[in-house]
């Protein structure tokens, strides 16, 4: 047997026609071929040209990552596939809504930590907060881990959106 090749995490931006079924095509490609999806976001980014941008975070060996890109590029409604991880460090952000139910000292502590993470309380009751926090995946993971012992109720995350640094477009 060959040695298992090292895997790496890649963020891939895909520009697609915003048409019915396109997400199913992309997701079906990943499930059908056994690729991994860590995160996936999608929204129309050019209403005039009916283009959507899908951001996928995946992990795989270099050969698998190359396959993923080639397979995506082969889908008929796909205009462009760009591996943001290859083009140097890209800006990657996630947004999370984090619900924490706590009273007394725990409630105060959750607010203090939120302040450090530049999270905003977008909803509050006497017994709870909903925090909005943006940042890298690691930052959001850290925030959620800290909220855990303080009364974490639930989390909703957008998944990663990403864009290359510098003046060039996709």
């Amino acid at each position: 047997m060959t040695q298992p090749q090292p895997t790496a995490r890649h963020t891939i931006a895909v520009l697609v026609d915003n048409e019915p079924g396109i997400l199913a095509r992309v997701v079906g490609l990943f499930s059908g071929r056994g690729y991994n999806i860590e995160s996936l976001t999608v929204s129309e980014t050019d209403a005039h040209a009916h283009l959507s941008r899908i951001t996928i975070v995946t992990t795989g060996t270099p050969m698998v990552i190359e396959q993923i890109k080639a397979q995506l590029d082969r889908l008929v409604p796909v205009h462009k596939v760009c591996d943001l991880t290859l083009g140097g460090p890209a800006v990657e952000r996630e947004l999370a809504l984090v619900k924490v139910a706590a009273t007394g000292e725990k409630r105060v502590e959750s607010l203090r930590i939120a302040d450090i993470f530049r999270a905003r309380a977008v909803d509050s009751t006497i017994k709870s907060f909903v925090f909005e926090v943006t940042g890298s995946t690691d930052k959001i993971n850290a925030f959620i881990a800290l909220m855990e012992p303080l009364g974490l109720v639930e989390v909703s995350r957008t998944g990663v959106v990403a864009i290359a640094r510098g003046g060039q477009g996709l």
Binding site: M63, E66, Q67, A70, Q71, D73, R74
Partner: peptide, 11 residues
Amino acid sequence: IDPSSINKNVR
């Protein structure tokens, strides 16, 4: 003609 056929099974 299909880039996805290249380096799929064999480098």
